[in-house]
């Protein structure tokens, strides 16, 4: 560790890289397979935002609960949901995480503390207030983390949850993943005050803003926020300024983007590229070690797709089973 200038051991750095690469490969593969017509329903891809989910989830354990969004694959993978079960779920197969009945926007695994992706904007925040209240009452030191996008943060449910979390001093953490667009509407046109940190202050909790394309910025800041929540310091909000590499949904023509914008963010704001270059340049991990992970991840996702395609569909007689979840 003496020659490692980062706040994580080499093993943890490799784990972070593997996590981000797995999310990226998973999403890029879905992008291709969806365009080919292989996947039912809608998918909203997380590619570009991997440093946020990974930087946050590396501070959490299975007892800590998260509530995700419609763009939830990255949160699921980083929280430990099995990648093959996720792929099967998105393919609508009986071997999926929710027996093929939830699809992309309802993947959940309570044993991992993953309370579900969510098709309703702003709906994760009230769930997390409940999870954080449970953690507070049980006194086990767990925290609840709610994800919301810049658009979803304008929902009343989100703002009501900030209020509730502050009133009850809950170990709740509100993560605003600001990728610049609520579907196709720029944050410049849709957010009064335009500062999520201001909103936190208005509800009596600290808010911070970090560069969500920098894994270390997210990791370092959320570490302090999680510590505060576990120690009884109450709720916090963190805005992660990030980018998404694909449209709001697959098939989105993205006519609302500026000329050259996508090329620019892929070239200059790719969180995985930034992470890899920084860690390699510090001499902690070699390109060969990174390449080995890349290869393993590609093989894993390929296996997940092959197995998902080969898996059976749910039977008609099971139409009404596994639809509701008892918490």
């Amino acid at each position: 560790m003496s020659n490692n200038p980062f706040p994580l051991s080499k093993e943890k750095l490799l784990e972070a890289y593997r996590m981000m690469r797995t999310i990226r490969e998973f999403e890029e593969r879905l992008h291709v397979d969806f365009a080919r017509g292989d996947i039912p329903g809608f998918v909203h891809l997380y590619a570009g935002e991997e440093a946020v989910a990974t930087g946050i989830m590396m501070h959490l354990n299975d007892r800590d609960r998260i509530a995700s969004t419609h763009r939830g694959h990255g949160h699921c993978i980083a929280k430990g949901v099995d990648v093959k079960e996720m792929m099967a779920e998105i393919y609508g197969k009986a071997t999926g995480a929710c027996r093929g009945k939830g699809g992309s926007m309802h993947i959940a695994n309570l044993s991992k503390g993953m309370m579900g992706a969510n098709g309703i904007l702003g709906a994760g925040a009230p769930l997390i207030c409940g999870a954080a209240l449970a953690a507070q009452k049980l006194g086990h030191g767990g925290v609840g983390v709610s994800f919301v996008g810049d658009g979803g943060s304008n929902q009343g449910t989100f703002l009501e949850s900030l209020n509730l979390a502050s009133v009850w001093n809950l170990p709740a953490i509100f993560v605003v993943e600001n990728n610049g667009y609520a579907e196709s509407t720029s944050v410049e046109w849709a957010v009064a005050g335009d500062s999520y940190v201001d909103r936190a202050t208005g509800f009596g909790m600290p808010g911070v803003s970090v560069d969500g394309t920098d894994f270390f910025a997210v990791y370092e800041a959320i570490g302090e926020i999680v510590k505060r929540a576990r120690e009884g310091g109450g709720p916090s909000l963190i805005e992660c300024k990030t980018v998404r590499f694909h449209g709001h949904f697959e098939g989105d023509a993205q006519t609302y983007r500026g000329k050259g914008e996508l090329e620019d963010i892929r070239a200059n704001k790719d969180c995985i590229k930034i992470f890899r270059n920084r860690v390699r340049d510090a001499g902690v991990v070699s390109d060969a070690e990174f390449d080995k992970i890349d290869k393993a991840v590609v093989a894993l996702i390929e296996e997940a797709v092959v197995e998902a395609k080969a898996a059976p569909l749910p039977k008609a007689g099971e139409l009404l089973t596994d639809v509701y979840v008892a918490y």
Binding site: S195, D198, G207, V208, S209, V210, E220, E224, I225
Partner: peptide, 18 residues
């Protein structure tokens, strides 16, 4: 966007609203 960093959590630094 000044006064937005982690010091609000670490040490109760101020936050000036827009």
């Amino acid at each position: 966007v000044s006064a937005r960093d982690i010091r609000r959590v670490i040490s109760h630094a101020g936050c000036l609203q827009i």
